[in-house]
């Protein structure tokens, strides 16, 4: 399908530094992050608020530019892309999911899902059909004509997930997708993301401080104070859990 699908790494960051200047003071939100993400992985970026995980999320998604260092998507340096190429990348290759859902308020669920397809040049009929199909996958086929304000938080996030899959992206970026949801709904959303990840082979990178995410992640990247503290594989966690006979091992 894509020229880059042969590469093992879908995302690589090299020495990513992000500085913000606020009131004359320079704040280093990221202090040199090197992270390689394999195709098809489910990665959780864990860390307290203010740790820099959302900043890293923005760098990987091309929503903001690093002050230093590079982000590569499919081995292409994002800094080399012009505005149109970056828009293309966001439209076709990356799907975004946000804590606050960020649906377009005046559009129905179906229109929200089809918007990225309009930008991608998919004809109306085809995009409506695919939109309905995606809404069915997330369990909202019957509510396609509802506006975001007529949907619950969990339902809005489902629409956002359907929208993020509109153009069959290779990478889904989710920034605190369960942050505004209650525990049960959060679990459903996480399971939905995991299912999509397995069924469609899409890579998922999720910034979170929801420990439920640990269960489904292939790797957990702990971020603290703008740096990667450590990276854990799920297998290792399972072993440690087994040894400890409990869940206490999670609360690092």
């Amino acid at each position: 399908m894509s020229a880059g699908s042969g590469h093992e790494w879908i995302v690589r960051t090299k020495g990513v530094v992000k500085e913000y200047t606020m009131g004359g003071q320079t704040l280093r939100a990221l202090k040199g992050v090197d992270l390689d993400v394999r195709r098809g992985e489910y990665i959780s970026l864990m860390g307290p608020s203010g740790s820099g995980k959302s900043t890293l999320f923005n760098m990987i998604g091309g929503l903001d530019k690093p002050s230093e260092g590079n982000v590569f998507i499919d081995e292409v340096d994002m800094a080399q892309l012009d505005a149109a190429e970056l828009a293309y990348l966001r439209c076709r290759r990356i799907g975004y999911i946000f804590q606050t859902f960020n649906l377009i308020p005046v559009m129905t669920a179906l229109e929200n899902v089809t918007l990225p397809m309009i930008f991608a040049g998919v004809p109306s009929d085809a995009s409506a059909e695919k939109g309905m199909q995606l809404l069915k996958v997330v369990g909202l086929g019957h509510r396609y004509h509802h506006k975001p304000t007529e949907l619950s938080g969990g339902q809005q996030q489902r629409v956002a997930i359907a929208r993020s899959f509109a153009n069959d992206p290779a990478l889904i970026l989710a920034d605190e997708p369960t942050g505004n949801l209650d525990g049960k709904t959060g679990t459903e959303i996480i399971e939905l993301l995991r299912t999509m990840n397995k069924d469609r082979g899409v890579t998922v990178i999720s910034a979170t401080h929801d420990l439920k995410m640990v269960d489904v992640s292939d790797r957990i990247v702990y971020i603290s104070d703008g740096q990667i503290e450590r990276i854990e594989n799920r297998e290792d966690i399972k072993i440690s859990l087994g040894e400890m006979h409990g869940s206490g091992g999670l609360a690092h």
């Binding site: 894509s2 499919d74 149109a84 293309y88 076709r92 005046v106 559009m107 991608a120």
Partner: peptide, 26 residues
């Protein structure tokens, strides 16, 4: 190939008719 994504259109687009209907809907 500068950009991932391969063959076909490399551009995003917003046809005027579609833009008009979105604006009116707004």
């Amino acid at each position: 190939g500068r950009l991932i994504g391969g063959a076909g259109q490399r551009q995003v687009q917003l046809p005027l008719a579609k833009a008009f209907s979105i604006a009116m809907q707004n």
